[in-house]
């Protein structure tokens, strides 16, 4: 099942801008990660090393595997090949250091819980079996709610919130996890302008406190302003590095407009491996 890594297969080297000083333990290290749904690869040969304290935007067209990448990185999907390390440890062992903001549509907002209950769920991972949230956990949850300016809504049922408010609740829950590495799946989708500003301010604040954040983002124009590091993704890593170096016409063309280019490159590699696959 081990695929040869793309580099060894004479694929033209992708621009892979190295960031971070050598010797530092990466917050997230992904090596030769391949994920497939029913034989069809969604991610292919992903290599990635994210140094701490970065705010990374994951950008790419629809179906590029952005959400899949963060789910795979958290070990929620079976990998066809490759491995993931978080702070130098296998991801299973370091889940406590990971915070997660799923897509807002992934849950049923009619669920009978209050805003406070949802944020408290962020504390659950640290509690362990048989333990209930304590006063300290409630305090943390309140602080996190206050940070996203949702404290007045703490006792509301979650369906009585606007889209932006729901997203803030999810963000507060992630904050309550008190993690070092955050994965966020489209936190800006369908939120109002005020929430968008509030979220990005919060993300910058977290980054400045040394946290690492990987944020799936679908809006290219704002990506440049929001993130200090960008990961251009389209089934493969097209480019990864400082925003000002990566946000270039050529690379974006390759990510979005250049869908065909990438496919033909891959087709080329598959063809060269010979035997096992036929290229029409």
């Amino acid at each position: 099942m081990n695929l040869p890594s793309p580099e060894s297969a004479s694929l033209p080297a992708t621009p892979h801008i190295n960031c971070g000083s050598p010797g530092e333990v990466s917050s997230l290290e992904v090596h030769d990660l391949t994920v497939a749904y029913q034989k069809k690869p969604v991610l292919w040969g992903i290599d990635l090393a994210v140094p701490p304290g970065r705010l990374v935007g994951i950008v790419g067209p629809n179906g590029a595997g952005k959400s899949t990448l963060i789910k795979a990185a958290m070990g929620m999907l079976p990998l066809s090949s490759g491995w993931v390390k978080v702070f130098g440890q296998p991801v299973r062992k370091s889940l406590r250091r990971i915070g997660y903001v799923p897509q807002r549509e992934s849950v049923d907002w009619d669920f009978p819980v209050s805003v406070m209950d949802v944020v408290l769920m962020g504390r659950y991972g640290q509690l362990g079996l048989l333990r209930r949230p304590r006063k300290r956990d409630r305090e943390i949850a309140r602080e996190c709610l206050d940070k996203v300016k949702m404290l007045p809504y703490a006792n509301r049922q979650i369906s009585n919130l606007s889209g932006g408010q729901q997203q803030r609740v999810f963000l507060a829950r992630a904050l309550a996890q008190e993690s070092d590495l955050y994965f966020m799946d489209e936190p800006f989708a369908g939120v109002d302008a005020a929430t968008e500003t509030a979220i990005i301010t919060l993300l910058h604040e977290l980054r400045d406190r040394g946290k690492t954040l990987l944020v799936v983002h679908h809006d290219l124009p704002t990506a440049r302003d929001y993130f200090d590091t960008l990961l251009l993704l389209n089934m493969r890593v097209v480019a990864f590095g400082d925003t000002d170096k990566v946000f270039t016409h050529d690379l974006l063309q390759k990510t979005y407009g250049g869908r065909l280019t990438i496919l033909s490159e891959v087709a080329h590699v598959v063809g060269q491996r010979g035997g096992s696959a036929k290229v029409p």
Partner: peptide, 13 residues
């Protein structure tokens, strides 16, 4: 038999 389940060319279409 094919070992690499992923190399199925159908995806390239």
């Amino acid at each position: 038999r094919t070992n690499t389940a992923l190399s199925a060319p159908e995806w390239i279409h």
